[in-house]
Deep mutational scan, measured.
Amino acid sequence: IRKQWHEDITQDLRNHLVHKLVQAIFPTPDPAALKDRRMENLVAYARKVEGDMYESANNRAEYYHLLAEKIYKIQKELEEKRRT
């Protein structure tokens, strides 16, 4: 379902936000690492998460909020795993 606010969101912005999700899960300073085949699954997962939020959000603010919440949860989980 195409929503009115979707018209304001460019593909570049969506790609940028997918990249932010990927960085939250696997922070790497090396952009070449993103071309690694093992990263493809991670990028696919991040695209799916972003797509789900894009579809479920009712406006741009909610879209950003859902993504920020997801990134926060991912970082929290990773922190907890590092501690144990």
Rank of each mutant, 00 (worst) to 15 (best):
I1V: 05
R2I: 11
Q4I: 12
Q4E: 15
Q4V: 07
W5Y: 06
W5V: 05
E7P: 04
E7D: 09
D8N: 06
D8I: 00
D8K: 02
D8R: 03
I9C: 02
I9L: 06
T10L: 01
Q11R: 04
Q11M: 05
D12N: 03
D12L: 06
D12Y: 04
R14L: 01
R14Y: 06
N15I: 02
H16F: 10
L17D: 00
L17K: 02
V18P: 01
H19D: 14
H19C: 07
L21K: 00
L21I: 15
V22M: 06
Q23M: 08
A24L: 03
I25W: 13
I25N: 07
I25A: 13
F26R: 14
F26S: 15
F26E: 15
F26P: 00
F26I: 13
P27V: 04
P27H: 14
P27R: 10
T28E: 10
P29T: 14
P29N: 14
D30P: 04
A32D: 14
A33K: 13
A33M: 14
A33R: 11
A33T: 10
K35G: 13
K35C: 09
R37V: 09
M39F: 12
N41I: 01
L42W: 08
L42D: 01
L42Q: 08
A44F: 04
Y45F: 08
A46K: 05
A46L: 04
A46M: 03
A46I: 01
A46Q: 04
R47V: 02
K48A: 06
K48P: 01
G51F: 11
D52G: 00
D52V: 04
M53F: 13
M53C: 13
Y54M: 00
Y54E: 07
E55Q: 08
N58L: 03
N58S: 13
N58E: 12
N58P: 02
N59V: 01
N59F: 02
N59P: 00
N59L: 02
A61T: 13
E62V: 04
Y63V: 00
Y64D: 15
Y64K: 12
Y64Q: 15
Y64T: 10
H65V: 01
H65P: 00
L66W: 01
L67R: 02
A68I: 00
A68Q: 14
E69K: 13
E69P: 01
K70M: 06
I71Q: 05
Y72Q: 14
K73P: 04
I74M: 07
I74L: 10
I74N: 07
Q75F: 00
Q75M: 01
Q75G: 10
K76L: 09
K76N: 09
K76A: 14
E77P: 08
E77W: 05
E77K: 11
L78Q: 15
E79M: 08
E80C: 06
K81L: 06
K81E: 10
K81T: 07
R82F: 08
R82G: 12
R83Q: 13
T84R: 15
T84E: 13
T84K: 09
